[in-house]
């Protein structure tokens, strides 16, 4: 993936704004930002971001490619859509945030330890295995995300809920062994492979 990153750096050099417009989902909207700051003011998590949306857009214009793409800010977005509803220029800010996160991920430079990034990868891995989400495994993986002892502590804390869910048939303990999946798993994997090829081709077009 870092090949793509190098290629992109090479291709767009001093024009990160153009790179974003061409490669990031809804990225062509970034240039329409008028820097009013309503998005940053509206974001419920804004105070906890290193760079709120308005600042991210400014950084894109100022060619701060590395800082933007390795930032954990856009990963903080909870999709509440406050910014998007309020933007006087009607920018799809929420979508741009996800677009930026996705683009950074694709280039392989997204912050690896960012919890949303980590969990999203976990979810994807879990889902693509059988075509169905294995909730038990996903839940456990989430508990153990931050290390073994943390995982044990969390599991103990949640024990009674887990038992209750098992008793009422809300959670199948046997899922721990393989678990259920879609009927045509072979076809499902072929489909994902094809999608990946298409995506790679599309990205390649821009490299």
């Amino acid at each position: 993936m870092s090949d793509v990153n190098t290629a992109m750096v090479e291709k767009y050099r001093n024009n990160f704004l153009k790179e974003v417009a061409n490669n990031v989902e809804e990225g062509e909207w970034v240039r329409m930002c008028m820097q009013c700051g309503v998005c940053s003011g509206s974001c419920p998590l804004g105070p906890h971001w290193d760079h709120p949306p308005q600042e991210l857009f400014m950084m894109i214009r100022a060619n701060k490619r590395e800082e933007v793409l390795t930032s954990n800010s856009m990963w903080m977005c909870t999709s509440c859509y406050n910014c998007m509803v309020r933007c006087p220029r009607e920018l799809p800010i929420t979508h741009i945030m996800h677009g930026l996160a996705h683009y950074a991920k694709r280039l392989g430079i997204a912050p690896k330890e960012q919890p949303t990034n980590k969990f999203s990868q976990m979810f994807w891995n879990n889902l693509t295995k059988t075509g169905r989400v294995n909730e038990l495994k996903l839940g456990l993986a989430l508990y153990f995300m931050n290390g073994f002892s943390e995982g044990i502590k969390m599991s103990m804390k949640m024990r009674s809920i887990g038992q209750g869910m098992a008793l009422t048939g809300r959670m199948a303990p046997m899922e721990i062994f393989g678990g259920h999946g879609v009927k045509d798993q072979k076809g499902f994997h072929a489909m994902l492979k094809k999608a990946e090829e298409l995506e790679a081709a599309r990205v390649g077009e821009h490299v």
Partner: peptide, 11 residues
């Protein structure tokens, strides 16, 4: 907007 749309950067 037309300026922004045609790629004029505003800092």
């Amino acid at each position: 907007r037309a300026g922004q749309d045609q790629g004029v950067t505003f800092l």
